[in-house]
Design a protein around this nucleic acid. Structure first.
Lengths: 173, 173
DNA sequence: AAATTATGGTTTCATTTGAAACTTTGTCAA
DNA sequence: TTGACAAAGTTTCAAATGAAACCATAATTT
């Protein structure tokens, strides 16, 4: 569950668009490389919470946000996690079923509730966090701290460029 | 379709595991950053083939592999694309329905068929490729060629490390 | 105050996808 | 030659997920 079936790519050759001039090569296409990269990384993560707690990605992410020792509304969880409201809602429902969150009405907004981890949920969280940290160390073990900074910085810049790519219903001016 | 609902992260601060020592922060957790990064990138791609041809990710990838001017079996498509056989099978079924591939039996293996793009499929491919190349340029426009090399190289190394992360049913020696 | 619009969150429906089972053909060992 | 095992690919089933609709409450406009 949540396990990608992609197998490893063949080469890490430089990807410059001009390489496609002669013939488009999927294996050099940056979005494709991103997908393969992502599926390898995410597989390692989902395996941890998937196998130990039968958790889904959005449930883990929601729990991770609630790990801060404060109460949050679903809207705040959305803001801090970049998940959409449906995903957050479903994740909350799942965590609620497990008895991992406590809820009370939101005095400021009758439509909303305020959530926090229950003691049981806190235990699950406290058990997963060191494993996640250990996993992250392993993923980045081949990189120096400088390289990690470079990698995340470059990812960020591509991400910003991706956000600037116009929607098809938008005319680029 | 295929559209992630993640919104942009807040910061690109250095991600070093020691940052979690005080308190685990999802927004600094590398796998999480990878997911957000990936969802932004993939959204730009799927929008192109999704809106113009109602294509799904695996269909585009299969078409991209078949874009080489040779005939391939599903197994060869699997190898070249890192997709699993179920995904390839479903993608082929979809492309077949659209009339975008031609097939003949594989003389070397009665279970298999040999596939290539039909003239209609070739047209779709030829229309999508320059758009994909243009998109890739936009995604990478903020990066110098050297930075692109660095980024893909670092992604590759993390990917390799991810592959070395043991399965939970494997004992690490 | 009442009407309209917006928001927070949930639910429904259809599609996608992951895992496993299945069928046919190919390979290999006895 | 026969049987066991493996491979190539498809199909089934259940779960996940995307998009849209829905409901109740809040905010804004008239």
């Amino acid at each position: 569950m949540g396990r990608s079936k992609e197998r490893s790519g063949k080469e890490g050759a430089a990807v410059v668009s001009s390489l496609h001039d002669k013939e488009f090569k999927l294996e050099l296409f940056f979005p494709y490389l991103t997908r393969v990269f992502y599926s390898h990384v995410t597989r390692t993560v989902s395996r941890i919470y998937g196998e130990q707690y039968a958790m889904k990605p959005h449930e883990w992410r929601t729990m991770a946000i609630l790990g801060v020792r404060e109460s949050l509304t679903p809207a705040q969880i959305m803001e801090r996690s970049s998940m959409d409201k449906v995903s957050v809602s479903r994740a909350i429902t799942g965590l609620r079923k497990r008895g991992w969150i406590l809820e009370r009405t939101n005095k400021n907004d009758g439509r909303s509730r305020v959530l926090r981890l229950s003691s049981t949920g806190r235990k699950v969280y406290d058990n997963l966090v060191p494993q996640m940290i250990r996993l992250e160390k392993r993923l980045l073990e081949d990189l120096s701290p400088e390289e990690v900074n470079v990698l995340t910085g470059l990812m960020k810049r591509v991400q910003e460029a991706a956000k600037r790519v116009p929607q098809s219903d938008e005319r680029e001016t």
